[in-house]
Write a protein that binds this DNA or RNA. Structure first.
Length: 332
DNA sequence: GGGCGTCAAGCGTAT
DNA sequence: ATACGCTTGACGCCC
């Protein structure tokens, strides 16, 4: 079992998603930006290794406008060495990597332009995995998309796009995540029947949208769609409802009692867990600590000191709370 | 230097 | 018709 968090490390002063506006795009600006993002990515991965967080979701902003036609810069060649080195580090430390292309990637849209751009974006993100030399256990995680008034037709379009438009590098890495409003676990299992794509189970979305499957049962249904040899250990998104907030809103910090309760539903099932929680690595470290207490994660190295976990109170507002828009403290 | 409107891209729901 | 939430942060103009 591995545990991790998505995209951003709030402890480190760097960002792996430095970008600029499309209007100010230039080849001169792209190169240094990618270089800075890759350097930060390396720092984040090293921080993760030091804290026993071996699962990480990379952000799509590593190469600004990576799938946009404005970007004709040969960044694949320019940074070949850096990508290879990153991949070596990942394999050496047994890290699990994923991407989660954003909401604009919709494979079942009736609009061919949207489908084309979506395919381009998946090819871009898949190419990053290729450049790092990572196999098909590194995943591209997307949702099923829109319904457009006819879910069966929408699912059929999804399958058709999958079969006819995607290169192998993408096909072997795509996984579909159940969402909280439109496509349930059961719908996603239908997509698995049509295409063979594994289902990435999101426990919180399942709480929001389901057909009565118990958590324990749902976990097994999703896990059974993963081919251990090709896909690796099933990935899982974990989060829980923010108390007192709109239904579907993630908590700001891990709620250890709810996390422990969820772990009982795993009942021995091996998964790699992504904590989709607002305070990122702070909660991932707290989650890792729980897993270690339960013997589900390798013990921390002797002398390891956990960073202080100061949960963000979901209801109380304190003077010490991080202001929402504050920038990270400069390293200088 | 800090504040804040806006940023390539979609969809569905709330108001 | 418009705003908003979702994956979410950060650019960059303005003062």
């Amino acid at each position: 079992m591995k545990i991790g968090y998505p995209c951003v490390n709030e402890t480190l002063a760097c960002s792996a998603a430095t970008t600029f506006r499309l209007a100010s795009y230039s080849a001169e600006r792209l190169g240094p930006t990618v270089a800075a993002n890759l350097a930060c990515l390396r720092q984040i991965l090293e921080w993760n290794v030091a804290h026993g967080l071996l699962f990480f979701r990379m952000g799509s902003g590593i190469v600004p406008f990576g799938s946009h036609e404005v970007n004709t810069h040969p960044w694949q060649q320019e940074f070949r060495g850096e990508f290879e080195e990153l991949g070596r580090y990942i394999r050496q430390h047994g890290l699990r990597i994923s991407f989660h292309p954003d909401q604009f990637v919709v494979l079942n849209s009736p609009d061919p332009t949207i489908v084309r751009r979506s395919v381009d974006e998946l090819i871009y993100q898949g190419s990053l995995l290729d450049l790092m030399g990572l196999d098909a256990s590194a995943k591209l995680q997307i949702h099923a998309g829109g319904v457009y008034g006819d879910k069966d037709a929408a699912l059929a379009r999804w399958a058709d796009t999958f079969h006819t438009r995607l290169p192998e590098a993408v096909k072997t890495r795509i996984v579909v995540e159940n969402d909280d409003r439109l496509y349930s676990l059961r719908d996603c299992l239908g997509l698995h029947e049509m295409t063979g794509v594994p289902i990435l189970f999101d426990n919180f979305h399942h709480e929001c949208l389901h057909h009565g499957e118990l958590m324990r049962e749902a976990l097994r249904l999703a896990a059974a769609t993963w081919d251990a040899a090709r896909d690796g250990v099933p990935m899982l998104d974990y989060s829980s409802q923010a108390p007192g907030e709109r239904r579907g809103k993630h908590t700001d910090s891990l709620v250890p009692t709810r996390f422990r309760e969820f772990l009982t539903y795993l009942d021995g099932l091996d998964v790699d867990m992504m904590l989709e929680i607002k305070d990122k690595e702070a909660s991932a470290v707290a989650g890792a600590r729980v897993l270690r207490e339960l013997g589900l994660l390798a013990p921390a190295p002797a002398g390891y000191a956990y960073p202080e976990f100061a949960p963000r109170a979901a209801t109380a507002t304190t003077a010490s709370a991080r202001p929402p828009r504050s920038r990270k403290a400069s390293a200088a």
